[in-house]
């Protein structure tokens, strides 16, 4: 369905918008159960993912405030230099995001064919596949890179409990890694189901995953600045 029919957010305050069953419902299998697909479904997915990210933000804000308080207390706060590998990892993650963006855009141009476009399968364009796999590979590479960075640090004798700075380093990168792992599961889902999902569903889900994935990028850059640049 063309983007033009999607109601803007301002619409929420007006009566008469939407209707029952407007959302396509289930996370894992819309298009089944005879539910009507609707222009709202896309918005529902986006809203859901942004609300989820709001709570992710609060989680990291909580950890950030702990970081700031703990740093102010001083004491044994012994800051170690950033492992250079993290720069490489950052570039890998940014590249992964870019790849996912390309993959998402590969779906944008396609107009679904057939009388009931929303529920019919679609030939996934090769560009989508290529870039999606690239994003998955780069995402995995980032996590491997993070693991190597941990390895390097512990080889230097810097462990979780060594000092407050290292405690926060491992905690924050660990939490970020866990969230990224969640993103990889979503990417894995897209990879596995891309041929079987209706175009609109695939597009919605790719879009939602991309929002999450880009957010994780921004979060990573923020954490890097907090851990090694912010004073």
């Amino acid at each position: 369905m063309p983007a033009a029919t999607i109601p803007a957010t301002g619409d929420l305050l007006r009566p008469g918008a939407g209707g029952p069953g407007a959302g396509d419902g289930s996370f894992g299998g819309d298009g089944d159960g005879g539910r009507r697909p609707s222009p709202r479904a896309r918005q529902t997915h986006r809203l859901g993912i942004w609300l989820g990210l709001a709570s992710v933000t609060m989680l990291f804000l909580g950890l950030t405030s702990a970081f700031i308080v703990r740093e102010k207390l001083g004491g044994e706060w012994a800051e170690f230099a950033m492992p250079p590998l993290l720069v490489v990892n950052t570039l890998v993650l940014l590249a992964s995001s870019a790849a996912l963006e390309r993959s998402k855009r590969a779906l944008a141009g396609i107009v679904p064919s057939g009388a009931r476009p929303a529920v019919s399968g679609v030939e996934v364009p090769p560009a989508y596949n290529t870039w999606l796999l690239a994003a998955v590979a780069l995402g995995l590479l980032f996590l491997v890179g993070q693991a190597v960075a941990w390895q390097q640090l512990s080889a230097r004798g810097i462990y979780l409990s060594t000092n407050p700075h290292s405690s926060f380093f491992y905690t924050l990168t660990g939490m970020h890694g866990l969230h990224l792992l969640g993103g990889l599961v979503a990417l894995g889902y897209l990879t596995a189901w891309r041929g079987r999902l209706p175009l609109l569903a695939l597009r919605r889900r790719t879009e939602a995953t991309a929002i999450y994935w880009h957010f994780m990028d921004g979060l990573w850059v923020y954490l890097l600045l907090l851990l090694f640049v912010w004073k």
């Binding site: 929420l12 305050l13 007006r14 009566p15 008469g16 918008a17 939407g18 209707g19 029952p20 407007a22 959302g23 709202r40 918005q43 529902t44 809203l47 859901g48 609300l51």
Partner: peptide, 13 residues
């Protein structure tokens, strides 16, 4: 939150 914002019936301002 998503349900309240997005799935209201027609006329349910």
């Amino acid at each position: 939150l998503t349900t309240t914002l997005n799935l209201r019936a027609r006329g349910m301002s």
